Simulated scan of single mutants.
Amino acid sequence: MLDPMILLALAGVGLLAGFVDAIAGGGGMIALPALLSAGLPPVAALATNKLQSMFGTGMAAYTYWRGGFVSIKALLPAMALTYAGSLLGALAVKQIDTSLLDIAVPVALIGIALYFLFAPNLSDADKLARLSFPRWVPLLGFTIGFYDGIFGPGTGSFFTIGFVMLFGLGMTRASGNTKILNLVSNLAALTIFIPAGDVVWPAGLAMAAGQLIGGYVGARTGIRFGARIIRPLVVLVSIALALRLLFWT
């Protein structure tokens, strides 16, 4: 049984993680170490992190949708394939050698940071899409969902850059669409973690309370300030995740 003060501290961490995640992704970088520090075993920490982040991601997704930045109808095929990809990744993780990802993912995250840092004309205005949204977004969802199932860090950054580079979405719309697919991917993981009994519910629900607040405030902040805050936060989160994967894992 976790001490009430630890649960209160986890709720505060959930609020901060939800705020950052709603704008730029990477909330797990804040939440997961906190759960490990609270004494949860690694698998339980991973499962509980998925549960608590689902609340913040869900609130952020709902807020972006209410703001008119997401079309659920257009995303339905991608949502289905994201779920399938994440589920297959989680089921296949023990059969796949993921050691190459230890270097490849940080390099990709640094590349994302450099793109968002130096690319001209990154704004909230939609640009010309390089690929057809209905045809190719489901493939994006399946691929990144599968990655999330087997590894996970940087999933939000990968979705965001895909929506910006390949489908021409403005930064705020890209963040909103990212939150929807991130939520679906988390749900897929939980269909495995919950029946297995891996989730520590008191810790997860305490953090979920903070996530609901952080997710809402973060999404409202992203909507209000758009690319002015989303762009630098994506850069900071991507670099921080890359450094953490290279030197603290």
Rank of each mutant, 00 (worst) to 15 (best):
A34N: 02
K50I: 12
F159K: 03
V235M: 15
M59W: 07
A227F: 10
F167R: 01
V164M: 02
M54T: 15
A113H: 03
G215V: 04
V93K: 14
L181Q: 14
S37A: 15
L35A: 02
P202N: 12
G68P: 12
M165N: 05
I161G: 00
W65P: 00
S185T: 09
G168V: 13
G145D: 02
I110T: 07
R220L: 11
I23L: 04
A84W: 13
A80E: 04
L32P: 01
V137F: 12
L181N: 10
V70W: 01
I150W: 09
A206L: 11
L245I: 14
I161H: 01
A34L: 05
L100D: 02
L169M: 14
A108V: 05
A47W: 07
I239W: 03
D148M: 04
K94S: 14
M29I: 11
I110A: 10
G170D: 01
W201F: 15
G176T: 11
K179N: 09
A208R: 09
A92T: 09
L101P: 00
L190E: 12
V184S: 06
D3W: 12
L212C: 11
L8S: 08
L100S: 13
P33R: 02
L76R: 15
L233E: 12
G197L: 11
A17F: 05
L40W: 05
A78P: 11
L75R: 03
V217S: 14
V137N: 08
A240D: 00
Q95R: 14
F167M: 01
G25C: 00
L166T: 08
V199T: 06
P41M: 03
D21K: 00
G67D: 11
G28D: 07
L131D: 06
W65K: 11
V235N: 12
L131G: 03
V234E: 07
G156H: 13
G39E: 04
G18E: 01
F19T: 08
A74Y: 05
G67I: 13
P33F: 06
M5T: 10
A125S: 13
S53Q: 11
Y115V: 03
G58M: 14
L187Q: 10
S99M: 11
L32G: 05
K94W: 07
A219T: 08
M171I: 01
K94L: 10
G197P: 05
T98G: 11
G141R: 05
V235Y: 14
L51D: 04
I150Y: 11
L81K: 03
A242Q: 06
A61N: 08
V70C: 02
G162K: 01
K94C: 01
T82N: 06
A61L: 12
M207Y: 01
T178N: 13
L181K: 08
N121F: 04
A61T: 10
L51E: 07
A74R: 15
A196G: 02
